[in-house]
């Protein structure tokens, strides 16, 4: 098998393992979903927004729900590697260690994206917005791609510290702020039926975020893993 296929196969094997662990334990997606739905309900009933304000705030609330739910998922994902030191098992394998980063990032991304897909119709009902919009879904793909790749990197970094349970959000939220702002702004403009030219700079920022965080993961994941 050529090295590139081998690399892809390793990513797939780690992704497959994460799916199986999630299917058995059901501790990631359900928790993320319940948490995200709670945010939707709480804000809806607490704020009692007028329809105009709902339209303005829906994008921001969607990303608050996704960011917090994703962080929960990242914590859970890395907890399964911490349990019994399973991460060492991955590190011992004769594979390129950056493939572990991509495998873990992929599973974190897919889990969060699934939560987003379930969340969108609920948002549509509560905030009187058509959230099942392909452009919005594309922005969610871009936003979650960079958020979960950065999150995976930081989750692995935090696993090696004593303050591991609180360190992830403390590191992740400030570093992901530009991505979240870009995601909120572009989502808001999409929901307001603005033309692409109005939000293309935000899209470029999201694309740059994906390239940056995937690149950083590729270059530094192994260094982070080796204490």
């Amino acid at each position: 098998m050529n090295p590139f296929n081998r690399y892809l196969k390793t990513i797939w094997q780690i992704f497959k393992k994460d799916i199986r662990v999630e299917w058995r334990g059901r501790q990631g997606i359900p928790v993320m979903l319940v948490f995200a739905l709670l945010i939707v309900f709480l804000f809806n009933f607490a704020l009692q927004l007028s329809p105009d304000l709902q339209a303005e705030l829906a994008a921001g609330l969607l990303w608050v729900a996704l960011a917090f739910a994703s962080t929960l998922g990242l914590n859970r994902s890395i907890a399964s590697e911490r349990e019994n030191n399973a991460l060492d098992g991955l590190l011992l394998a004769p594979v390129d260690r950056s493939a572990i980063f991509f495998g873990k990032s992929l599973s974190n991304f897919v889990f969060t994206f699934l939560v987003a897909l379930i969340l969108l119709p609920v948002f549509s009902v509560f905030y009187n917005q058509n959230m099942l919009n392909l452009r919005l879904i594309f922005i969610i793909l871009l936003g979650l791609g960079s958020y979960t790749s950065l999150g995976t990197l930081l989750a692995v970094l935090s696993i090696q510290t004593r303050a591991r349970d609180v360190l992830l959000p403390v590191l992740l939220f400030p570093l992901a702020l530009p991505i979240l702002i870009a995601a909120v702004e572009s989502s808001r403009l999409v929901l307001g039926s603005h033309p692409v030219s109005d939000y293309q700079s935000w899209l470029f920022l999201l694309i740059a975020g994906n390239i940056l965080f995937i690149g950083v993961g590729l270059l530094f994941f192994e260094t982070i893993l080796e204490e």
Binding site: M1, R6, T10, Q13, K17, R20, V21, R24, G25, S80, E83, N84, N85, A86, D88, G89, L90, L92, A93, P94, V95
Partner: peptide, 24 residues
């Protein structure tokens, strides 16, 4: 090592199969 390096939510066979695949 000191710890088993296994995933508690997988069976013994699934855990070893996962490692066997990683070792090609």
């Amino acid at each position: 090592g000191h710890q088993s390096m296994f995933y508690n939510d997988l069976t013994a066979a699934e855990n070893l199969r996962h490692y066997a695949e990683l070792y090609q």
